[in-house]
């Protein structure tokens, strides 16, 4: 049984829920069982957002993640809050243009991506979330970059067609970062 539990956390407006939705749809196109659970509580009003995504080849039990295999941290409070919950052998993706701190654990793999800066430099400042997702798809052994166009196609409404290309650009930035 292969199950990947992904926790994405950051500020409201960083596209936390959208990147989770993207990963859930990605899993769906690969015939996996998936669940997507957003935070909808008072923290949304206070500015932080998080999202639980589970991808599995067997039916998903609880959609609530307590020990993520993958943490995407888009701001410092999120990293501090969830860093210890990541399972041993898991992965942490850090937007290092927004977070100065380093992860002080040696039992997890950590990727520092200056995603917000990379996106800004390309004029797509609001798509740092997708830069990190691009990197995740490249680096996570169970996930893959193949077929992302179809998922973008599905998620971006026709009225905002211009965003398709920009999302692809962001994913590619993340995929190639560090190579």
């Amino acid at each position: 049984m292969k199950t990947t539990q992904i926790l994405i956390a950051g500020f409201g407006g960083q596209g936390i829920l959208f990147s989770g939705k993207f990963l859930a749809y990605k899993g769906l196109t690969e015939e996996l069982q998936v669940s997507w659970l957003p935070s909808y509580g008072p923290e949304m009003r206070g500015g932080t957002a998080n999202c639980n995504v589970i991808l599995s080849d067997t039916p998903v039990g609880s959609p609530i993640i307590t020990t993520p295999d993958v943490l995407i941290a888009m701001n410092l409070p999120s990293l501090q809050k969830y860093v210890d919950s990541v399972s041993a052998g898991g992965q942490i993706y850090v937007d290092s243009s927004l977070i100065d701190a380093k992860v002080e654990r040696d039992d997890v793999e950590v990727f520092y991506i200056p995603a917000t800066q990379l996106a800004k430099d390309e004029g797509i400042g609001t798509l740092a979330n997708m830069v990190i997702v691009g990197h995740l798809l490249e680096k996570h052994p169970e996930l893959s970059f193949d077929g992302v166009e179809a998922v973008i196609e599905k998620l971006v409404p026709p009225k905002k067609a211009a965003l398709k290309e920009l999302n692809m650009k962001a994913l590619m930035l993340g995929k190639t970062y560090g190579n």
């Binding site: 769906l28 998936v34 669940s35 997507w36 659970l37 957003p38 909808y40 998903v60 959609p63």
Partner: peptide, 10 residues
């Protein structure tokens, strides 16, 4: 409940 209402699944 709020969780089943808010969550997405296939």
């Amino acid at each position: 409940d709020g969780t089943i209402g808010q969550m997405m699944e296939p």
